[in-house]
Design a protein around this nucleic acid. Structure first.
Lengths: 215, 215
DNA sequence: GCATCGAAAATGTGATCACAAAAGAGCCAT
DNA sequence: ATGGCTCTTTTGTGATCACATTTTCGATGC
């Protein structure tokens, strides 16, 4: 639930494992229901079971992994009700973040967002669903960083983390070829300083993808 | 970030430690900045360092504890900006939870809320700040449970957890003697089925206490 | 062919240990 | 008295191990 800590030099073993697994889950590189073992993680990251366990427990606490009653961990298979809830949380938090970022959104930020949006068009045409998820999140994070609200951003990222495997399943299934149309609306609202329009655009962008999965 | 799991029979050691520390922090039994050691926790709960570390790491991941660069853990001392952010998050999430609970709020629920509210008046007159925090949270949780939104409730509880030590400092400082007036407004709005009134009452109740600390 | 039972492999949990880094206590010089 | 230095104690980290449980897989019987 904390923003990913940014150690200047130090990188303890469990932090390295945590970060590796976290980005893998958030970017949709793991399918829902995929199992993990502590010894397997340890082998892969060349550490013992102890740091692997710490990383896994942290991800379980954040809802990025689920732990069965026997202690086995796997990526979550979310119910439709939970997907709807998480989408509603994304809408609530990210609309607020966008709204707080609006007064500080200068032209340099908007340029950067447009660059990222162009990248999204690329990865979409390449049918690269992992790249799509990663770049899409980068678009949102770039905007929200301007809100200067680290606790809120951390909350939003936790929701993204929980939705990672589900988004993989979603964007892997529907083979979309068009870039997200709401991103253009977000950029336009930022340029115009139109707060109601921005709120609506962000809400629509966040809700649209998940709606068709849960529906 | 997960709702506290409810094991039917099993209670692993690290879960027992986690739960113990969690309620202690959330209910304001620890002051901001208070330090903890793994060996001390292990002694207190009669376990080795391993489960103590797991519990602590989980609480750090949830933002309930902060970890210094050298690995020392303590309860967080929040800046005013962060308090404002967390209060805004409470407002966002809890207003939504209350709104979702409204259509399902029958008379039995309202009765229970009034009972809890009477208890709050008791503990307030006894100058029992820990009891006040605990009962106040119970009031909110009882209402939000009706929303049938476990992910949102878990988010709200995580925010409570992060604010626990700060709320202790706040309610310990201002020696209030009157019960929270907004709880009555919440109950009245529930009875009347007045959604805008409910949203306003919840927002006011959540924001009022923290505003005077951050301001 | 299929279900069932049992042995073997795999897995999570928690304790213990060695090690390095950090904090603290004590001491001396000024 | 106070500031700085060293030595001792405390503390977190990660590895390893034993144990209980679960899972898996193959053999056996019908």
């Amino acid at each position: 639930m904390q923003a990913a800590p940014k150690p200047e030099i130090a990188a303890s073993a469990h932090d390295r494992v945590y970060r590796g697994l976290r980005t893998r889950i958030m970017h949709g590189q793991m399918a829902p229901g995929q199992a993990l073992t502590l010894r397997g993680i340890g082998r892969e990251f060349d550490v013992s079971m102890t740091p692997a366990r710490e990383a896994v427990n942290r991800l379980v606490a954040e809802g990025a992994l689920t732990m069965s009653s026997s202690g086995r961990v796997s990526t979550p298979e979310l119910s439709n009700e939970r997907i709807e809830e998480l989408a509603a949380l994304r809408a609530l938090i990210e609309v607020e973040l966008a709204s707080r970022a609006l007064p500080r959104a200068h032209i340099a930020l908007i340029d950067r967002l447009q660059t990222i949006n162009a990248t999204i068009a690329d990865v979409v045409s390449n049918r690269d669903s992992v790249g799509y998820i990663r770049t899409n999140l980068e678009f949102h994070r770039t905007l929200y960083l301007r809100a200067q609200a680290p606790a809120m951003l951390a909350m939003a990222e936790t929701v993204w983390l929980q939705l990672g495997p589900t988004m993989r399943a979603l964007y892997g299934r529907l083979r979309r070829s068009e870039p997200p149309q709401y991103h253009r609306l977000i950029i336009a609202a930022l340029k115009a300083g139109d707060e109601p329009g921005l709120r609506l655009a962000v809400r629509s962008d966040v809700t649209q993808g998940l709606r068709m999965l849960a529906g």
